[in-house]
């Protein structure tokens, strides 16, 4: 039976599968070519540049395959503030990721059931995410300004808010809570808050879609069994949402870890918000030190890979434990 079919298939020249294979390769090659030219090639070149002594001025003379050196990495690691900047980046990425997912979860839970104006609010909630970063960063900058910002003007009416607070230019700010004094990295917290505000709609979209796919019977059954709202959230909804939350955590962490615009626009990387992406930019434009910029970008990518490796390793272990 099968031999007959195979024989028939072979007799028709060229087979349907072979033709489809050829068509597939023909269709996919332009896209792959574009991607190779504008994405893969530059990334490979970054790796090469990181090991060469390259300044923008003499880049014309350097050829691709000579002058290998580790000097760039030495410069990157020895530059003042390298390690603090890595910690700042980590704090920024973890804070931004966790905050935006938590806020997105709260929003998705709140907008789950229909109410009047829900469609409108749903649309409005996406505004921070789709609006141009330069425009919203400028609005935050003006609103938070100690001279003419609305936040300080209104905040001054609250007890304990005596002097205007320089949200974006204060490396550490004394705060007293119930008589205890704390120093908080105010500018860093502010850029994290901005990140959370801008990206919680992203988490909200994903989580709302998943929430609406949870079968009603699950929650009804839990209610019948006497579960309160908190228990339903903890034991019914969260397990359903966990895969989406894990995916969001990875996506948002990668994006926030490499973030440049938001921080650069709000603080220029000053006041303790010197994330690594801003350092890459500084190496590149302030000193035209292409080699060091490439090395710094590569170090950032390597740290990210390492963290993702740890994350996936951890989850693989947990999955095995549960199995």
């Amino acid at each position: 039976m099968s031999t007959v079919r195979r024989a028939v298939g072979r007799r028709r020249p060229p087979t349907l599968a072979a033709r489809e294979n050829r068509a597939g390769l023909a269709f996919v090659s332009p896209t792959v070519a574009v991607v190779a030219a504008v994405v893969l090639l530059p990334v490979v070149w970054t790796a090469v540049l990181a090991f060469q002594d390259a300044r923008l001025a003499d880049i014309q003379e350097t050829d691709l395959l000579s002058g290998w050196t580790l000097e760039n990495f030495r410069r990157v690691f020895a530059a003042p503030g390298f390690w603090p900047s890595l910690w700042t980046t980590l704090f920024y990425a973890v804070g931004g990721t966790a905050g935006s997912i938590l806020l997105g979860l709260a929003a998705a839970l709140a907008l789950r059931r229909p109410f009047r104006g829900r469609g409108l609010l749903r649309g409005a909630m996406l505004l921070p995410y789709v609006a141009p970063v330069v425009a919203v960063a400028f609005v935050w900058e003006v609103a938070l300004s100690p001279q003419y910002g609305v936040v300080n003007e209104w905040g001054a009416r609250l007890p304990g808010w005596d002097a205007p607070v320089p949200f974006l230019s204060s490396r550490s700010h004394g705060v007293s809570v119930l008589g205890a004094q704390f120093e908080v990295p105010l500018a860093l917290l502010t850029v994290v808050a901005f990140e959370v505000w801008r990206y919680f709609p992203f988490a909200f979209l994903f989580l709302l879609a998943r929430l609406q796919a949870v079968p009603r019977e699950l929650e009804e059954a839990a209610t019948v069994d006497g579960a309160g709202p908190a228990q339903r959230l903890r034991y019914v909804l969260l397990p359903q949402l966990m895969p989406v939350i894990a995916l969001l955590a990875v996506l948002r962490f990668i994006m926030t870890f490499n973030k440049f615009d938001d921080v650069y626009l709000l603080t220029g990387g000053g006041a303790g918000t010197d994330v690594v992406a801003v350092r890459v930019y500084d190496f590149l434009t302030a000193r035209y030190d292409v080699g060091a910029a490439a090395a710094q970008a590569l170090v950032l990518a390597a740290v990210l890979m390492l963290l993702l490796g740890l994350y996936f390793g951890f989850f693989a272990d947990r999955a095995e434990d549960e199995a």
Binding site: P42, L49, A54, I254, A277, V280, V290, A297, L300, A301
Partner: peptide, 12 residues
């Protein structure tokens, strides 16, 4: 792929 990895070579 982070934009920072693309930025340097594209700049050059």
């Amino acid at each position: 792929f982070p934009a920072t990895l693309l930025a340097v070579p594209l700049f050059v």
